[in-house]
């Protein structure tokens, strides 16, 4: 009897080694994008009820959220344009816009080189004269074949991008007399590839 009991115990111990219960690995909870068999549409995250406004969704300032003042495209920015904003703008521009519009805004990004219709350059008169709110609206709602970016880029970042686009426009339109001697010298140097430009100069 003892023998039987102890072999049962051993068997139990051995089974323990293989006993891989998965119920802590896969718990009955919803994580991001995990489906659901409870809801008919199979989605675990419920869509927002129409006509409701969640916290932080109240959008009362049309200048900031829609780029409009008195119903027309705003000429001014709803915030102070400073260096941190421009730097944020450059980073976001390079992530979201440069693929098509190119790093300098000429409209010759990689995706265009692979066959996407060419967007206009930012350096044409029509766009140089366009108010800031116009760009904000194009980013938000899209334009022509460009889809809107409202769900990818937050309003503040959209303004940062607009500020950076303004800086790009300026950069292509500087009188050579405004440059310092050092900058002018840099202009005269032959163009270097982007990779070489990152290598610190030797003296």
């Amino acid at each position: 009897m003892k023998r039987f009991l102890s072999s049962l115990l051993m068997l139990g111990l051995v089974l323990n080694l293989t006993g891989c219960m998965r119920d802590m690995q896969d718990q009955p909870k919803y994580k991001n994008l995990r489906g659901s068999d409870f809801f008919a549409d199979g989605k675990s995250a419920r869509d927002q009820e129409e006509g409701t406004i969640a916290q932080s969704q109240l959008r009362q300032d049309p200048h900031f959220f829609e780029g409009k003042v008195d119903g027309v495209d705003a000429v001014t920015f709803p915030m102070k344009v400073d260096r941190p904003l421009l730097e944020r703008g450059r980073e976001r521009y390079d992530i979201f816009c440069a693929a098509c519009h190119g790093r300098t805004g000429e409209g010759n990004g990689m995706v265009v080189q692979r066959g996407f219709p060419t967007p206009p350059s930012y350096h044409i008169d029509r766009l140089k004269d366009a108010p800031a709110g116009y760009f904000y609206n194009v980013i938000t709602n899209g334009f022509g074949r460009m889809y809107g970016y409202a769900s990818e880029i937050e309003p503040r970042d959209r303004w940062a991008i607009v500020a950076y686009v303004r800086a790009l426009q300026q950069s292509q339109n500087v009188d050579i007399k405004e440059l310092t001697a050092k900058e002018r010298e840099a202009l005269d140097r032959p163009a270097v590839s982007e990779e070489a430009a990152h290598v610190p100069a030797h003296h």
Partner: peptide, 29 residues
């Protein structure tokens, strides 16, 4: 093509979840 990760994985800087792009992201191009 040189697309930045954050073009598609938009919540990676803000949240726990990096995000998988919705269909509209693909359709942009």
């Amino acid at each position: 093509v040189g697309i930045d990760c954050r073009f598609c994985h938009t919540s990676v800087e803000k949240g726990a979840f990096a995000g998988i792009p919705p269909t509209t992201t693909c359709m942009k191009c």
